[in-house]
Amino acid sequence: MWTGQISNFRDLGGRITSDGALVVPGRLFRSAQLTGLPEEAAKELEDLGIHAVYDFRTAQERSRFPDTPINGAKNIWLNVLSDDMGSLAASLQPVFEDPRRASHELSTDRIRDLYLGVYRNLVSLPSALAAYGAFFRSLLAQPETPRLFHCVAGKDRTGWAAEVFLSLLGVSREEILEDYLLSNNQLIAAYKPMVEAFATAGGDPEIMENLLLVYPEYLDSAFSELSREYGSVPAYFADGLGIGEAEQAALITAYTLR
């Protein structure tokens, strides 16, 4: 599959669940934002049969960096962080554009603390619950049609959607963490020119790299918040996202092969 110019792109399928089922390949894809895609990259997504593109970004992010349209795919906006517009995850671009200020105001520890809060909010914010509930519920309609979901870098809002869904399907935490951490190599490679420009403009490249990287403790923070608020992944889907037991069973049946 040719995906070299689609940042942080991968198929959510192909992993084996704890009871030996296969997460169906070719159904769900994750990526960073689809801004400025070259024609061949857009054609690749069209050839995959992408039926819908779910955009988890804010209105400002969408306005400044609109997705490249994909023929045959509808764009569905689900604003995960509308209740936390100041979130670090929703303000990466402005931070990248002011290297000196970012380097002055941020440190490795500060970035870590901010991201831990981001991941707790991905579980508990009303806007996040509404957006993720709508996303997962929509997967029940024509589940055989391929879809793609993304945010800006495809690592936080997108990462939580991917990993909690894999958890519902029965994929082990070790496999989930492996998928989550794949973002690191992809993003550092994709953003290398921007990191270099950030440094040239007087910014600390380590700060930008830490803004781009994901760490196991971030994902742990989200799952800990889920356990504290709901007790289990099925309860989070039922009580937080409004997706009951029967719908959960339907999702598992639709997106796994036994």
Rank of each mutant, 00 (worst) to 15 (best):
Q5E: 15
Q5A: 14
F9E: 01
G14C: 08
R15Q: 13
R15P: 08
I16H: 06
D19Q: 14
G20D: 11
A21Y: 11
L22C: 06
P25F: 06
G26Q: 09
R27W: 08
A32S: 15
L34V: 02
T35K: 03
G36D: 14
P38T: 06
K43V: 02
E44Y: 10
E46W: 01
D47T: 15
I50S: 04
I50H: 00
T58A: 07
T58H: 05
E61P: 00
R62L: 08
S63F: 00
F65V: 03
P66M: 02
D67P: 02
P69H: 01
G72Y: 03
A73N: 03
K74D: 10
N79M: 05
S82C: 12
L88K: 07
L88R: 10
L92I: 05
L92T: 02
D98C: 09
S103Q: 12
S103L: 15
D109N: 11
R112S: 15
D113H: 12
G117N: 09
L122Y: 04
L125S: 06
L125R: 09
P126D: 08
S127H: 06
A128Q: 05
L129M: 13
A130Q: 15
A131T: 09
F136Y: 15
F136E: 01
F136K: 02
R137T: 12
R137V: 03
L140Y: 01
A141K: 14
P143D: 10
E144I: 09
P146R: 10
F149K: 02
C151R: 02
A153E: 09
E163L: 09
E174K: 12
E174T: 12
E175V: 05
I176H: 10
Y180K: 07
N184Q: 12
N184S: 14
N185Y: 12
N185L: 12
L187T: 02
A189D: 10
A190C: 03
K192T: 11
A197D: 03
A199T: 07
A201L: 11
G203I: 01
D204V: 06
E209K: 08
L213H: 00
P216L: 09
E217V: 11
Y218R: 02
Y218T: 00
D220A: 14
D220E: 13
D220W: 02
S221K: 03
S221Y: 02
A222G: 11
F223N: 04
S224F: 01
E225T: 08
S227Q: 15
S227K: 10
Y230R: 06
P234I: 07
P234D: 07
A235S: 14
L241A: 00
E245Q: 13
Q248R: 01
A250V: 03
L251R: 04
L251N: 04
I252G: 08
T256K: 11
T256V: 13
